[in-house]
Amino acid sequence: MNDSTEELLHETLLHDTLHTHVRECDGDVGAHLVGLADGALRVARRRQRLTRAGVGVALAAAVATAWVAVADDDPLRAHVVQPAEGRGATKAATISLLPVTSATERACTPAGGGYTVHRTETHPAMCIHASSAGGMSDVRVSVAKAEKGSVDGSWQVEVTLTPADRTRFATLTGSLASAPAPRNQFAIVVDGKLWDAPIAAHSITVGRVEIVGAYDGDLTSAMAHDLAQRLDPGR
């Protein structure tokens, strides 16, 4: 006798026993036991059919819904089995912090590479080139959060680096601080898009970066929250 047959006999016995017991019960408890008995028998029969067809336990588990009944005044509730923690979760996006090599007041040409900062009402279009040499590519941050700046109230994303990357970032910004413009800037790139290119006035040792947009005030609330959610590993 295989496992599915044993389960079916067990569930059939449970079904008959509960129905016999229902005759002695009134009200909601009797209805709960009927639901449990009928549901258990249907699941057992379905599992046996799937096993005979060679579908396997995995599909049977996906099709079957486990019913949990409490033999008191609580209503019958369906218990849905949740996937294991982290299963199906989307990985957080990475960020690159790259030394700027040039900045030209025009949009980038398709063949020339670089990152185009589009023109606004108050700023011209810019083409910014950055190099991965000496920079930090595909970094996973520790924390990212959207917030309003304390100075002008514009939206920004504050990114906190891991302890190991803080040391690398301090070295990077320290080396840029003494360079002439625009080589004293670093490009902040996420998913192939330039989000900011701040000036490194000194070595940044605290391991935090504020992304305010290619031009100050570029970020809306929706943009800031979306970017923070994509970068934060704990989302």
Rank of each mutant, 00 (worst) to 15 (best):
A228T: 09
M136P: 04
A69G: 01
I199D: 09
V55L: 09
R87G: 03
A66H: 14
T122H: 14
T104G: 02
I188E: 07
R47F: 07
V29L: 14
T101P: 08
L8P: 09
H118P: 07
T171Y: 05
T205N: 03
G27N: 14
P198N: 09
S221G: 08
P198G: 06
L97E: 02
G114I: 02
D74H: 14
L97P: 01
V55F: 06
V70E: 11
A144D: 00
P75L: 04
D38V: 15
P233R: 14
L59S: 05
A170N: 08
A40V: 12
T20K: 08
T90P: 06
V141F: 08
R23Y: 05
G88W: 12
M126E: 12
S175W: 01
L161N: 06
T116S: 12
T171L: 10
R168E: 06
G153W: 01
A44V: 05
Q82S: 07
Y115N: 02
A58I: 11
A125I: 05
L33W: 10
G54Y: 14
T173V: 03
G217I: 15
W195L: 02
T109M: 09
G135Q: 14
T104D: 10
V22Q: 14
G217T: 11
G134T: 13
G234W: 00
R230T: 06
W195V: 01
L194H: 00
R119P: 05
G153Y: 00
G112L: 09
A197R: 13
D218H: 13
A78E: 10
S154C: 03
L13M: 00
G153C: 01
H79C: 02
L227G: 08
H225G: 04
A222T: 15
A60C: 05
W67V: 04
A170C: 09
A31H: 15
H32Q: 12
T65E: 12
N2D: 15
E85G: 05
S102C: 05
T90R: 15
C108E: 04
M223V: 07
A78H: 03
